[in-house]
């Protein structure tokens, strides 16, 4: 093609397809990075929450032992009634905080489920780019119809992949607060 001359339809199609292919390669690289980071985040969250849980339980056990010691003192009559009442109230307060902490610490289970879903959807998006790239390698030889047919093929592949993904992806998490959920006995 000479300078200042418009590209012919076929040449234009080939350029469009090459551009699509370039987009797919770059998109795929970015998605691979996001996917890697999400998986890494999940690993770190899991590790952090396990350590938090272990420390939390150790603290709780220490508090329990302290409580037993105090109970022993109370039983031996070494404490005034008002002190006994105070210790009893503290025990109830600690139990309430422990319950709330156990409920709150479950955030990792839910975030992990959401990360798992994101990774599956990213994989689906990578498939889209893969379809673009695969078609980019086969350039249509003539006219707009060939380009339309190629884009239609990409659309079909992406649609089929979306249907597959819908059947295999894990359910989303709808909870908006870390309060305990409903209980229903059948």
């Amino acid at each position: 093609m000479r300078p200042h001359e418009s590209p012919t339809g076929e040449l234009m199609n080939a350029q469009v397809v090459r551009l699509l292919s370039d987009v797919s390669v770059h998109g795929d690289q970015h998605l691979a990075e996001v996917e890697r980071d999400l998986v890494q985040m999940d690993v770190l969250l899991d590790e952090a929450i396990k350590k938090l849980c272990a420390s939390f339980m150790a603290i709780h056990q220490a508090v329990d032992r302290q409580q037993e010691a105090l109970n022993g003192l109370l039983a031996d009559g070494m404490s005034a009634p008002e002190q006994a009442a105070r210790i009893s109230a503290l025990r109830a307060e600690i139990a309430e905080h422990v319950g709330a902490a156990v409920t709150g610490l479950q955030f990792q289970d839910m975030t992990s489920q959401l990360i798992g879903r994101m990774v599956q959807h990213l994989a689906g998006l990578r498939d889209v780019f893969g379809a673009l790239d695969a078609n980019g390698a086969v350039l249509p030889e003539s006219g707009d119809e060939a380009l339309l047919a190629m884009l239609g093929d990409i659309s079909d592949r992406v649609g089929a992949r979306c249907s597959e993904l819908a059947g295999s992806v894990r359910s989303t998490v709808n909870q908006r607060h870390m309060n305990s959920g409903d209980i229903e006995l059948f």
Partner: peptide, 25 residues
């Protein structure tokens, strides 16, 4: 329920409420 579950608890759970249900069963 159709599969044979006796109850449905939505996460996150509260330890006191969970043990209450377990004790009931």
């Amino acid at each position: 329920r159709a599969a044979g579950a006796n109850g449905w608890l939505v996460k996150p759970f509260d330890p006191a409420r969970l043990t209450e249900v377990v004790k009931k069963l």
